[in-house]
Design a protein around this nucleic acid. Structure first.
Lengths: 207, 207
DNA sequence: GTCTATAGTTCGATAGAC
DNA sequence: GTCTATCGAACTATAGAC
């Protein structure tokens, strides 16, 4: 059994997943952790600060588990497969769900916003590095900002996570569509130099 | 000045935007509407039911304003331009922000989930029809499920809206990257039949 | 249909015993 | 470091006057 501080951090994540940002309180978190309510304020000062710390703690914990798998990605298809596996595992575990809840809370609570950004950036960094490797040899890297694409990917990922919470079938359909869309990009990647030159010329004209 | 019922619906959206799902209550909404707190329960039975009604009300109101512009879209670039304009207008108005808040609340509140799905589906339908027109003449329509892609687009859109709330610069960067990515698809669209055949063959092999 | 008043609950946060 | 006890505030929901 971990120390009280750690138990509160993990209870905060569990409570966010179970009751949402509107349902967390010092009392509900402490009950989940099996400790007294006053300890939330002793260790973290306020509920907000506990939530902020919990999101950073959780993101770091989870990303450490995925780092090796991110590093092993070399193709777009592998990246997409990892994304879908990650989605399934994180949905069961709940860290991304908790992140999504504080992201919603951070819209109006200035104390929650920076913690959310920090937690999101941890994911974005991993996606960015994998995406950079994957796109390095494709015509895309020339015209698409990889950092921006990583941010869009992470934001979209959270949006899909929230969507799945209210419409699981729709979310599955969405993931399937994205998968076949990625197939098209892979196809473009594999094309010969003639086609790539043509694509490049077209891209220049459009950008 | 509208009737009390309508004022409560609009006050609920305003309060969701201003204070988030964790900050709405019969009292805060009634205060925004300038009416007594008890009227929330008289007209809607509970706060949850008011929120559910407000989201559907808001989505219908806003989509009616955009329907003509969605119908005018014929190319992917036009669709993306509309998406970015819509993003800016809705961010100022706040309906999508309110939808995102009940989406977060709907993860754990069974009374909120169906209303969120209904509200989201209104947007998805518009995107789906425009997307169907845009992709009809491209090789994409053969391999990508348009309905699924519309759902992914809407979910990603909400995710980006939430991301913008905590990191505006990052969100802008994400939108720019998506824009240049769409340029690549446009380029593929414009390619000659030879290239399209090659792409088609590749896609078959990968799917 | 709108208001006041109120019951009963839960909340954040602190003081103080151990 | 952890607990009990507690204050003051905000909350949902209802009863009842107008």
């Amino acid at each position: 059994m971990a120390d009280t501080r750690t138990r509160l951090l993990e209870a905060a994540l569990e409570t966010l997943k179970e009751h949402g940002i509107a349902g967390v309180s010092a009392r509900t978190i402490a009950a989940t952790a099996g400790v007294n309510q006053a300890l939330v304020f002793y260790h973290f000062g306020s509920v907000d600060q506990l939530l902020a710390a919990a999101v950073e703690h959780g993101s770091q914990q989870r990303i450490a588990l995925y780092r090796a798998r991110f590093a092993a990605v070399t193709t777009l298809r592998e990246l997409l497969d990892l994304g879908r596996a990650l989605h399934a595992e994180e949905r069961a575990e709940g860290t991304v769900a908790a992140l999504a809840q504080v992201l919603a809370g951070g819209q109006t609570d200035p104390k929650l916003a920076p913690a959310t950004t920090t937690g999101l950036n941890l994911w974005i960094e991993e996606v960015e590095q994998a995406l950079g490797r994957v796109l390095a040899r494709s015509p895309l890297a020339e015209f698409v900002d990889v950092t921006g694409l990583a941010k869009a990917t992470a934001a979209a990922f959270v949006g899909l996570e929230l969507y799945e919470g209210v419409d699981p079938d729709g979310a599955n359909q969405a993931f399937d569509a994205l998968e076949s869309l990625a197939g098209l990009v892979t196809a473009l990647e594999d094309m010969g130099p003639v086609v790539r030159r043509a694509a490049r010329a077209k891209l220049r004209r459009h950008s």
